[in-house]
Write a protein that binds this DNA or RNA. Structure first.
Length: 254
DNA sequence: AAGACTGACAACCGCACCTTT
DNA sequence: AAAAGGTGCGGTTGTCAGTCT
């Protein structure tokens, strides 16, 4: 089946997104969700293709995205998973909540691949001598082939990919999704009246649940969903929230 | 000071898979 | 069962800021 690229249509904008476009997209998704990416730009009044909107939302605008530097632990996880899974960035991203496949892919190509290469060219006595560990503190550890030293989930993935059984890999993916969803609270009335500090930060899921169950956002819910945001980000999201039809007090009053 | 180079990251493209008709 | 359309994924490119010469 041959399909014309969706952006070939005349008049569709390409390239970097402007803050105005971001605002339109976020505001639209907060209000209506994203059931149909292809139809979304037209309905939202954006001169972009659906694919571009989806990418922008997933890689940049989604509120549950962790911005900023990767920790050493994150980097080690990526290296280990890459060792097991290869370039399956979305599967790797599923293991790192808040990180996107694109971000991980970029980090791999710009930092980790290079660093791993440097590490692998180090003499064996540097790699193997425990006393030299401090000297190479910033270097990622080479993943062990021993299953004893690999987290159970990793050895599981390893054994599955070794057999090349795609179905089982997909099952693991699905399990990861289930794990993520289990971290979310049940969204009912008590959820919205209880500002528990253990609430998750997956705003997309929270918003989806909220949209389907409650008629209008309240600023308390945004605060709950975004309790990890700094003041500037909070203000940004609050403005969008109000534009999307939300109701509530100003941030300063909370 | 200015042009060249490099690294980081956002965004695009094409393909494959999945779902719907 | 097959065609059509939508979505997700991975590879690649484009852009921009910082550094070097």
């Amino acid at each position: 089946m041959v399909r014309a690229p969706c952006c070939d249509k005349m008049g569709l904008k390409k390239g970097p997104w402007t803050p105005e476009e971001d605002q339109i997209l976020v505001s639209y998704i907060l209000k209506h969700g994203h059931e149909n990416w292809r139809a979304l730009p037209k309905q939202a009044g954006l001169l972009r293709c659906g694919k571009s909107c989806r990418l922008r939302w997933i890689n940049y605008l989604r509120p549950d995205i962790k911005r900023g530097n990767f920790t050493l632990e994150d980097e080690e996880t990526i290296i280990q998973l890459h060792e097991k899974l290869g370039n399956r960035w979305s599967t790797i991203a599923a293991k790192l909540p808040g990180r996107t496949d694109n971000e991980i892919k970029n980090v791999w190509h710009t930092h980790l691949k290079k660093r791993l290469k440097q590490y692998q060219t180090k003499p064996d006595y540097v790699k193997n001598n425990p006393k030299s560990k401090n000297k190479i503190k910033s270097e990622p550890s080479i993943p062990s082939q021993s299953s004893d030293e690999v987290p159970s989930s990793l050895s599981e993935v390893s054994s599955i990919t070794d057999t090349g059984d795609q179905k089982e890999v997909d099952n693991i993916k699905a399990d990861n999704m289930v794990d993520s969803l289990q971290c979310l609270p049940k969204i009912d009335e008590s959820f919205w009246s209880d500002n528990s500090s253990t609430l998750p930060l997956n705003f997309e899921a929270v918003a989806d649940g909220y949209r389907s169950q409650v008629p209008m956002f309240s600023v308390d819910h945004i605060m709950v969903a975004h309790k990890n945001l700094d003041d500037d980000s909070m203000e940004f999201w609050y403005e969008l929230f109000i534009k999307a039809g939300g109701e509530g007090d100003s941030i300063e009053q909370l």
